[in-house]
């Protein structure tokens, strides 16, 4: 248990500092969320219609930012050896890394997502659902992203490879989350999309640690 807490504390502090930390991710998020409407036209009705989609797409892109360093740094500096020969299985180590990534990068973005959506013209009443979707979707982004990061271990230009592996797997949460939000805005039942999003995140959090551990072992041997 002490080892678990020690690892979680370390991962949280590393994730907080990784790639400039949450502030940089927020700045990136704000920039993307501002740029997309500039490209699509600035009529309020059109903006309001695409607001949930833009907020989600920006979220998925911002989630990619610091993934490259999630495992690569530990791999390069030898810390992954230490983590692989430890009191906790590598599967749990990978899950803790992703949880810390989610808390340090995903949670601040989830707070920013409703702000961005409302700024683009989404109704303020959708803010709680936007926050919940972004928080739960962020969990899927962190675990699926961790999977991509572990598979890209040791490759050159890992960041690009991670994006290519991970972005298709980001499609379901983007579809479910943005779907739930547009249903809410249109006055339709939205729980279906929201529950599917929860299911996808749960599946990602439950399954990907095994794949991440296997990918790390493969990279180490």
């Amino acid at each position: 248990m002490r080892a678990l807490c020690a690892l979680f504390g370390r991962e949280l502090s590393l994730a907080w500092g990784r790639g400039g930390g949450p502030l940089l991710a927020l700045a990136f998020y704000a920039a993307v969320a501002t740029l997309l409407p500039l490209a699509s036209g600035r009529e309020p009705e059109r903006l309001a219609a695409i607001a949930p989609g833009v907020a989600w797409l920006a979220l998925a892109l911002a989630a990619l930012l610091s993934l490259e360093r999630l495992f690569e740094r530990d791999y390069e500096d030898g810390a992954l050896d230490l983590l692989a020969v430890g009191p906790i299985p590598l599967e749990a180590v990978a899950a803790i890394k992703c949880l810390a990534q989610w808390l340090a990068a995903g949670a601040p973005l989830a707070l920013a997502a409703p702000v961005a959506a409302i700024a683009l013209g989404a109704p303020p009443a959708s803010a709680p659902l936007m926050f919940a979707c972004a928080l739960i979707g962020g969990l899927a982004f962190a675990f699926v992203g961790g999977l991509g990061a572990s598979l890209a271990l040791g490759s050159r230009r890992g960041g690009l490879l991670i994006a290519v592996i991970v972005l298709p797997l980001f499609a379901p949460p983007v579809i479910f989350g943005a779907g739930a939000l547009s249903s809410l805005t249109a006055g339709l039942p939205w729980t279906g999309g929201f529950l599917l999003l929860c299911a996808y995140s749960a599946a990602a959090a439950g399954l990907s640690p095994f794949a991440m551990a296997a990918a790390c072992r493969n990279a180490l041997s």
């Binding site: 080892a3 020690a6 502090s13 500092g17 390069e76 500096d77 810390a79 050896d81």
Partner: peptide
């Protein structure tokens, strides 16, 4: 195991890293 690579994070202090490694190893 102490290998070629020291497994220490450049951005953290020696104390933080040593405390973590000690706690990790029990």
């Amino acid at each position: 195991m102490v290998g070629h690579h020291d497994g220490l994070k450049p951005g953290r202090t020696a104390r933080e890293e040593l405390l973590f490694q000690a706690a990790w190893a029990g």
